[in-house]
């Protein structure tokens, strides 16, 4: 359905915006390394079914490979700034102070409590879904602390939030047309969209209405 396709495209766009801006401006100002590392972990633990020969479709396969590869690539790209631009890297590390072990531990507990079957793959899948729902927090925390945002981070977070927002409509669509619903994905998806709601409001005020407001 259209919600899902546009959701996936929005997700692709967010990665494209991030990669393009970092590569063309050679700047990592305002980007949270922790959030990017969490996303790499999310895809690594979710797409393990690539190795179980569980075939869904060519689209599904290519997207999984792309998300996996691009998330790892972004982490490597950010790490390169450690030697390429130590001052910018150090500044990022100093601002990127969110305690992610709470997110990791919380997602692990949620994965152990809510899963479809008690197998390693299913628990890791559930862990990845919960972790994705909170992985943006270090980035939002960094944004709120610095009080300024590069157009990069603003558009990046907007595209990422839009992706999750569209997925909610996708689930409503599927519930109606296919009579299928994945409770874990839906609850985590709503949590994730809620994380962005404050940001969306700021984005609306700042970007759409053109006011220079404060950040979330």
């Amino acid at each position: 359905n259209l919600f899902r396709i546009f959701g996936d495209l929005s997700h692709l766009a967010s990665i494209g915006i991030l990669l393009h801006t970092v590569r063309s401006t050679q700047s990592i100002d305002g980007i949270s390394f922790k959030t990017q590392a969490l996303y790499a972990l999310v895809f690594m633990t979710r797409y393990l079914d690539l190795f179980t020969w569980h075939w869904v479709s060519l689209y599904n396969f290519l997207m999984k490979v792309f998300f996996l590869a691009s998330s790892v690539y972004i982490v490597v790209l950010l790490q390169q700034f450690r030697t390429k631009n130590p001052i910018a890297y150090k500044e990022m590390v100093l601002q990127d102070t969110f305690k992610i072990h709470f997110l990791l531990l919380g997602s692990l507990v949620a994965g152990l409590c809510f899963h479809h079957r008690f197998t390693l793959l299913e628990i890791l899948w559930s862990f990845s879904v919960w972790l994705e729902s909170v992985a943006i927090l270090p980035q939002l925390f960094m944004l709120s602390k610095s009080g300024r945002a590069q157009s990069l981070t603003v558009h990046y977070i907007f595209a990422l939030g839009l992706y999750r927002f569209l997925y909610i409509f996708n689930w409503i669509w599927r519930y109606v047309s296919e009579a299928r619903v994945d409770k874990i994905a839906v609850v985590a998806g709503i949590v994730q969209t809620a994380m962005y709601s404050d940001f969306f409001y700021i984005y609306y005020k700042k970007v759409i209405r053109g006011n220079a407001g404060n950040l979330p």
């Binding site: 079914d49 869904v56 479709s57 599904n60 997925y167 519930y175 299928r180 994905a185």
Partner: peptide
């Protein structure tokens, strides 16, 4: 309605 995994999503 079927409540269960929808694993064809990303």
């Amino acid at each position: 309605h079927v409540i269960g995994p929808v694993k064809d999503e990303l």
